[in-house]
Amino acid sequence: MSMEIIKNYLSSKPEAKIEHPFGDEVMVFKVKNKMFATLSIGKMGKGDGEAQDWWVNLKCDPDEALALRDIFDAVIPGYHMNKRLWNTVILNGSIPQGELERMMDNSYMLVVNNMPTKDREAIELQL
């Protein structure tokens, strides 16, 4: 999936907003002021002249986070995040679109499910 497809998919979630608190190069996706994803150019190999892949940080259940890292080489512990609760997915084309969408949906819903009942129910009506 391309960066544009990922950006559009994440921003299409109910009440999702994009912010840039870490500078223009990092898109932070929030729902009700709670972060559920980031999207940026990968940092490994920066400046060596090679093409760089986009990276998306996604919240994840701790057990599933470990399993995904075992299954996919392009899933690593969350870059600059709590490595127990976040994965970084390197968008190099090695993960099927359906699996990426499932990971993004899970990240969004983990955040929504931890919201106060009023906020959670308002969002659930839009799903």
Rank of each mutant, 00 (worst) to 15 (best):
M103G: 03
D73N: 13
V75L: 10
S107H: 02
I76Q: 09
G98C: 12
N87V: 03
G78P: 03
V112W: 01
M81Y: 01
S94V: 11
W86V: 08
M81P: 07
I76T: 12
Y79Q: 10
P77V: 07
G78W: 00
S94Y: 11
I76K: 04
M81F: 04
I76L: 09
E99S: 12
N92P: 09
L100R: 03
A74E: 14
A74Q: 13
K83D: 13
M103D: 03
I95M: 09
N106L: 13
T88N: 08
R102L: 14
H80K: 05
M103Y: 05
L91W: 05
P77I: 08
V89F: 04
N92M: 10
G93Y: 13
R84A: 07
R102H: 12
G98K: 11
N92D: 15
N82G: 05
M109D: 13
W86I: 07
L91K: 05
W86C: 03
I90N: 07
E101D: 15
E101M: 14
Y79N: 06
V112I: 13
V111N: 03
W86Q: 02
S94P: 08
R102S: 14
I95E: 12
N113E: 10
M103V: 09
L110P: 04
I90Q: 09
L100V: 15
V89G: 05
G93N: 14
G78L: 02
D73V: 12
L85E: 03
G98T: 11
Y79V: 10
Y108G: 00
Y79R: 03
S107A: 11
I95T: 13
P116H: 10
N113C: 06
M81S: 05
T88Q: 05
L110F: 04
N87M: 06
V112L: 01
L91A: 11
V89S: 02
N82H: 07
M109P: 00
E99G: 01
D105E: 15
G78H: 01
Q97S: 14
R102K: 15
V89T: 01
I76R: 04
N106R: 14
V112F: 02
P96I: 08
R102M: 13
N87W: 00
E99T: 15
I95D: 11
P116Y: 02
N114P: 02
L85N: 08
V75H: 04
N113F: 01
L91D: 10
V112A: 01
R102A: 15
I95V: 15
Y108N: 05
N106Y: 10
L91V: 13
M103H: 02
E99R: 09
R102T: 14
W86P: 02
Y79D: 08
G78M: 01
M104N: 06
L100A: 09
L110W: 01
M104P: 06
K83Y: 12
Q97D: 14
M81T: 08
L91F: 11
T88M: 05
M109F: 13
